[in-house]
Amino acid sequence: MAPETLATAALALVVLLLFLGGSAKAATAGSHAEPGGLARLGPGVLVPERWRKPVMIFCAGAEVVLAAGLVFTASPLPRWGTVTFFSVATYVLWELRRRRPDVGCGCFGDASGSPVGLRSIGRAVVLTGAAVLVAVVPVTGRNLLSPSWHTLIAFGAGLALLAVLSPEMEESLARVRHRAPCEQRPIAAPKALARLRSSSEWRSHLDLLTAAEPSDTWRELCWRFFVYPARVASGAEADVVFAVYLSGRRPPVRVAVVEGEAAGPLRKSIGVSAGH
């Protein structure tokens, strides 16, 4: 397959994703008029609160401008701009996963609410590669007008790869099926427990646990938490907290080991008034 064929398919993919991402981000930024609306979508959480909305709008604008530049001009500026954009995005996603494991990438606005996983990062890497191909091989929007069969096949394969790497697909399908986002769907605890027990985080902490059943479990938004009594290597009593995301077939699982009562500063009392 000629490099030009591959580059044309890559151009189509990059332009499609830039355009979709830009419009979804713009829609999300526009729909949350009130402050704090973007608090749980990256990369806004990495910047101070008053900059969150401008960052989202700037990202959306940059994506649309880059997409237009790739289609309508042959200038190297949007090409290397796209390479820079996706490489920076890869780094930001990595950083987001490290610093705020609970927030979504916001790549497609509020459709990307599930926490950043290796799939989202892999997608950014694939798109960076596609952008490099577009920058190296001189193709413009004119090549898109008369695609060959090979281009279409390469485009289809690339699209399938990106769909596999998109955590948004499962959640979007579930939203259409249940007519409610993950936060509003009732999801039984045993299902989440089964997902937890098939995760690598569970296996790596299994030795610490001192009980087979969780001592407490509760749900907050799209996360279900399980607390297990445990004993750390030094012999001290501890709690292992697992957080299981409730959307997707292989959902992200986060874990923390909390020793003793050192669970951080609590409000002086949160009593429960009824029934407990």
């Binding site: 610093r99 705020r100 494991p101 609970d102 001592s215 407490d216 509760w218 907050e220 996360w223 938490f225 607390v227 709690d239 907290v241 697992f242 957080a243 986060r254 874990v255 923390a256 909390v258 669970a263 951080g264 500063p265 609590l266 409000r267 009392s269 949160i270 009593g271 429960v272 407990h276």
Partner: peptide, 20 residues
């Protein structure tokens, strides 16, 4: 287990700020 620890434990697991 008391529910009053839940917020702190959830914050630990998800890397949020511990201070309510």
């Amino acid at each position: 287990m008391g529910v009053e620890r839940r917020h702190a434990l959830a914050s630990k697991a998800l890397g949020r700020s511990l201070v309510p």
